[in-house]
Nucleic acid binder design. Structure first.
Lengths: 111, 111
DNA sequence: TCTATACTTCCATCGTCGTCAAACAATCTC
DNA sequence: GAGATTGTTTGACGACGATGGAAGTATAGA
C-alpha cells in the first residue's frame, strides 16, 4: 500500500517544534480542518478547501513542517498524500495541547 | 503604587501571538518558572535564576513579547518589574492551553 | 510510450526574530 | 546632586522562515 513518510517517534516529539508549527495561521488552519474531520484526508483536497492563495510548493512545505514536528502522519498513496493527525501520540506526549489549540477561537474573532 | 504596563485586553489576545511567544524555549523557561511559582515575581530575580547567558536587552525583549502577547502582566515598581501570569484571562480565552504547554515535558527529555 | 497530474526539491527573495553592545531613562542611596 | 543600579530603547547583525517560480520526480491513464 502507501508508504509512510519519515516522522519523529512519540518520545522525540519536541514542544518547541510543535508550538512553532502551530504558531503559523495557515498551518493551524490545515490542522484545524484535519483535526475536526476526524479522519485521514487527501492533502490536495484539503489545500483547495482550507487555504487559498498559497502555491503548491508552500503548501508542500507546510505539510512537511507539520509532519516533521510530529503533529501529522503522511502516507503516500499514488500521486496523493493522505494526512492524519497523530492524536494518540500527541495526547500521550502533550496531554490536552491539541484540543486547547485547535479548539480555541480563531484569531480576530474577538469573543 | 506601581504602573501597569500596556497589555492586550482579554478579548484581543491572539492565539498566533501566544503560540509564537511560547514557541521560544527561553521565554517558555521564564513562563514556566513564573507559572509554577504561582505568584508575581521580580523579573530581574527571575532572569538570574532561570535563564543564564542572555543579556539584559534580550531578557527585556522577551518579557515585552510575553506581555504584549497577553501571557503576562507587568507592573513597574521603582526600578523593578513585577511580572505575573494572566491565568484567569488565558483560561477564559484559551482554556487548558497554559496548563498543557507549561505542564508539558521539557524538550530533550525524551520520556 | 506519451501526456497529464500531483507533489517535491532547488533556489532566490524578503521579512521577521533572537541576540547583543551602546546609549538612554528612571530610581534609589548617600 | 553624584553615583550606582535597573530596566528599556536603538541599531545592527546573523539566522531562520514563509513564500513562489522553475525544474524535477513519480504516478495514473490513454
Amino acid at each position: 500500500m502507501g508508504q509512510r513518510l519519515p516522522e519523529p517517534s512519540v518520545e522525540s516529539i519536541e514542544l518547541t517544534a510543535v508550538l512553532s508549527a502551530l504558531a503559523d495561521p495557515n498551518r493551524r488552519a490545515l490542522m484545524g480542518e484535519l483535526y475536526r474531520s476526524g479522519e485521514p484526508r487527501d492533502c490536495g483536497a484539503l489545500d483547495r478547501c482550507v487555504v487559498t492563495g498559497l502555491s503548491a510548493p508552500t503548501l508542500s512545505h507546510h505539510w512537511k513542517v507539520l509532519r516533521e514536528s510530529g503533529l501529522t502522519r503522511t502516507v503516500a498513496e499514488g500521486r496523493s498524500r493522505i494526512i492524519s493527525v497523530r492524536r494518540e501520540d500527541m495526547e500521550a506526549r502533550f496531554p490536552g495541547l491539541l484540543g486547547a489549540v485547535l479548539g480555541a477561537p480563531v484569531d480576530n474573532s474577538a469573543g
